[in-house]
């Protein structure tokens, strides 16, 4: 599977008469829980302070999200 990249890309139809500058690639996010059918025992763990900060004890379930096109400021998408 795509272990390095948590997003999947797809290529929407781009018409010859699109009113706005088209996006050629769109992507959606696949969280790590989708890739683990049933969580195995004894997975590696974060340190406890780190786990409290990140929201999960297990790196395998850690799926961070960054703002896509930064709302305020630059306009790079993904």
């Amino acid at each position: 599977m795509n272990a390095t990249k948590p997003t999947r890309d797809w290529y929407p139809f781009v018409g010859p008469f699109d009113p706005c500058p088209p996006k050629y690639v769109k992507s959606y996010y696949v969280p790590p829980n989708e890739l683990i059918p049933y969580q195995p025992m004894n997975l590696p763990q974060f340190s406890l302070p780190e786990a409290l900060r990140l929201g999960t004890l297990w790196p395998a379930l850690y799926g961070p999200y960054e703002a896509r096109s930064s709302m305020r400021g630059q306009q790079s998408d993904e």
Partner: peptide, 13 residues
């Protein structure tokens, strides 16, 4: 769809 498919969050707002 044509008007919104390429809009960024900022443009949507």
């Amino acid at each position: 769809y044509k008007l919104t498919k390429d809009a960024t969050p900022q443009q949507m707002e």
